[in-house]
Design a protein around this nucleic acid. Structure first.
Lengths: 227, 227
DNA sequence: GCAAAAGTGTTCCTTTTACACCCATGC
DNA sequence: GCATGGGTGTAAAAGGAACACTTTTGC
C-alpha cells in the first residue's frame, strides 16, 4: 500500500479561435496502439522530476509544435477503466492559443496535428470526448469572470471580434451596444489609433488592446470582471 | 517513457460547520515519517483498480471514521518537491459533512483526528496549508452559485443559521432581511411547522428544509442560483 | 445613393441595497 | 416592561435590457 503501479499522464485541450471558423481544438492522430489511427488530444506520460505543467508544455511542443499562452488545470480523470492497457490517471489541462501565431506541424515523424471545430469532432480515443466537453464548459464559465478571452484573439482586436467570440462561446446573441458599453466601462482596454482592415462592406472598427496591468490593479481595488 | 515511478495519492479537506465555532476542517496527527507528529489532512495512496473518489472515501473512513455527504475534486498538486520521499502527485478533494452526525474516532490504533477552526490551524505537513487555502477559496465561490451550504447544516435549519453560514464564509455582513427574501424567492426551501429551540433570548425562528428535487427541476428550467 | 456594419445615447424595467417597523420570546 | 433577535414591507439607487439614431465604408 505504500506503493502502487498506477501511471500518470497529462493531456491538454488546446483551444483556438477564428472569427470565420469559430472555436476549435487541436487533435493528434494516434500512430500507436491503443486506439491507433484515431484522433486524440495531445498528451503523454509525466517524466520523473517534471512538474505537471512542464509535462503538458513539453508534450504540446513535441506533438504539435506549439506554445500556449494560457494554461490551466482542468480536472483529473481517474476511472480505473479509462485506459484499456492498465490504470492510467490523467491530469487534464486546457490551454488557449492565438491560432495565427502557429502553424501546426508534426514534430515526431509519425504524427499529424489538426484543428477541429468543436461542433464537428471526429471519434476520439479514450475518454477524450468527455474531457473536451468538460473543457468547453469550463472555458465558457471562465471567460465570464476572468479576462482570458484575449488569449484567443490577436493582440490587436476590434470590438466586433471580441463580441463575436463571446457570442460564440455563450451560444447566444448579445446586444452589440450593451456589450461594448459594459466592456469599455471596465477600463481595461486601450483604444488604438488604427482601424481594422476592412473585410467586405461596412464601417471598419477601431482596434483595441487588453491592458493586463490595468486589470490587475483594478482587481486589487475590488473591481469585478463580469461579462 | 512508457512507464514512470511517480506515485499517486488522494487527500481530502473535510469541512464542518458549527454556528458557535464557525468553519472547521478535520486534521489527522501523523504517526509515521515524514512529518511524524505533525498535523495533516486525511489521505493516502490510491489502490489498484480503485477510483479516485473511492480512495478518498476509504481513507476518510479509515482515518477519521466519517462519511462525507458532498465530495468534489479540488485540484491536483504535482510539484516534484512537495514530498521529501519521492515524487508523489496528489489529487485533492474537498468534502462537506454535518458535524453533529459524526463523532471523530481513531480507526487505526495510532491515529488521532480532530476538528480545527480554519482561523486557527496548526503547522501542517507537506503542502497541506496550501491545499486547505485552495479548498476554502473554492468553497466560498461554490456556495455562491450551487446550493451546497445545506450539506454543512442539519437537515432542519433556521434562517439565522443559514444566514450565519454565508456571512461566515463570505467574511462579511449580509443584510439579514435581504438575504431571507432572496433565498425564499428561489423557491427551494420548505418552511416547516416547527420552530428552532430557543437558545438565549429573542424570538425563535422557523425551521426550513432544502428541497433538492425542486432545485433540480427549477435549474432545468433555467433558474439561476446565486446568493 | 444605398446597403452594411460600427459607434453613441436614451429610456424603461428589474434587481439590489438600505432601512423603518412589527412580532415573539426570556427575564 | 425591556432587551434581544426574528419576520414583513417599502422606497431609493444602481444596473441591465431594449432600441432609435448617427457615422463610415464599399459598390
Amino acid at each position: 500500500m505504500s506503493s502502487n503501479h498506477i501511471k500518470l499522464t497529462v493531456d491538454a485541450v488546446v483551444f483556438g479561435y477564428d472569427p470565420s471558423d469559430g472555436l476549435s481544438v487541436i487533435l493528434i492522430k494516434r500512430k500507436i496502439s491503443p486506439f491507433k489511427g484515431m484522433w486524440a488530444i495531445p498528451g503523454g506520460f509525466v517524466l520523473e522530476g517534471e512538474s505537471l505543467e512542464a509535462a503538458v508544455e513539453r508534450e504540446l511542443h513535441e506533438e504539435a509544435g506549439i506554445e500556449v499562452n494560457y494554461l490551466e488545470q482542468l480536472y483529473t480523470f481517474g476511472d480505473p477503466n479509462r485506459d484499456p492497457r492498465s490504470q492510467i490517471v490523467t491530469v487534464a489541462y486546457y490551454g488557449l492559443i492565438r491560432r495565427a501565431n502557429f502553424e501546426l506541424y508534426a514534430a515526431t515523424d509519425a504524427e499529424e496535428a489538426h484543428w477541429f471545430n468543436i461542433n464537428n469532432l471526429p471519434n476520439l480515443a479514450f475518454d477524450h470526448k468527455k474531457i473536451i466537453a468538460y473543457a468547453i464548459q469550463r472555458l465558457r464559465n471562465k471567460i465570464s469572470y476572468e479576462p482570458i478571452g484575449f488569449e484567443l484573439l490577436n493582440e490587436k482586436f476590434s470590438f466586433p471580434e471580441l463580441h463575436n467570440l463571446y457570442a460564440t462561446l455563450y451560444g447566444k446573441d448579445i446586444d452589440r451596444r450593451n456589450f461594448r458599453k459594459k466592456f469599455l466601462q471596465l477600463g481595461i482596454l486601450e483604444e488604438l489609433d488604427e482601424k481594422a482592415e476592412k473585410e467586405g462592406r461596412g464601417r471598419p472598427g477601431f482596434l483595441y488592446k487588453f491592458l493586463p496591468e490595468k486589470y490587475f490593479a483594478l482587481k486589487k481595488e475590488g473591481m469585478i470582471f463580469e461579462i
